[in-house]
């Protein structure tokens, strides 16, 4: 898919945050921000709140229910064995397995969902918009609208070091 972009290169994260705030005011959608390190202010301005925690909670509940049903099926219905005179349905030892399976299932599934949502695969080639991101610069990627001059103006005012238009992917 080919898209046209405006790229703003910044040398300071405070300037990026300022630009992001202005974009937010003017309702300009931002495609992505790249930088050498994670910055909480940028994340807060740029990204929507992740919904993965809610999904993880759902996975956790699902894991508890599934594990409980499985152990109940095995120890009570399908293959009841008497262990030391304990009743077939004894809850306390189930808790340990439920606890461990919850961690396993929640951890695995939410990381898979994360990889799927961000379209990351092992061995995937990273798309580097500007090689200076690997050094000490920040890059803002904005989809090119009908009047690019307005955005260019905005980026320039915010203190962008360099602004370019790119037609490739």
């Amino acid at each position: 898919m080919k898209k046209k972009h405006i790229i703003g290169v910044f040398d300071d994260e405070a300037k990026v945050v300022a630009a992001l705030k202005k974009c937010k005011e003017m309702h300009i959608p931002i495609e992505d921000v790249f930088g050498p390190f994670a910055d909480h202010d940028i994340l807060k301005q740029h990204t929507k709140k992740s919904r993965i925690p809610h999904l993880a909670f759902f996975f956790g509940v699902m894991a508890v229910v599934l594990t409980f049903s499985f152990i109940y099926f095995v120890t009570v219905i399908d293959y009841p064995i008497n262990f030391g005179g304990k009743p077939y349905f004894s809850f306390p030892p189930m808790v340990v397995l439920m606890y461990l399976m919850t961690i396993l299932i929640t951890g695995t599934l939410s990381s898979l969902v994360f990889l799927g949502r961000t379209q990351l695969l092992p061995g995937k080639q990273a798309k580097i918009v500007d090689p200076r991101v690997l050094d000490d610069h920040f890059v803002m990627l904005i989809e090119k609208p009908d009047d690019p001059e307005k955005i260019k103006e905005l980026l320039r005012n915010a203190g962008a070091k360099e602004i370019e238009e790119r037609d490739e992917e």
Binding site: G84, G85, K86, P92, P93, V95
Partner: peptide
Amino acid sequence: WFVQFLIIWYAN
């Protein structure tokens, strides 16, 4: 809380 209970419950 649970560890203390479980071990005593299990060993019986």
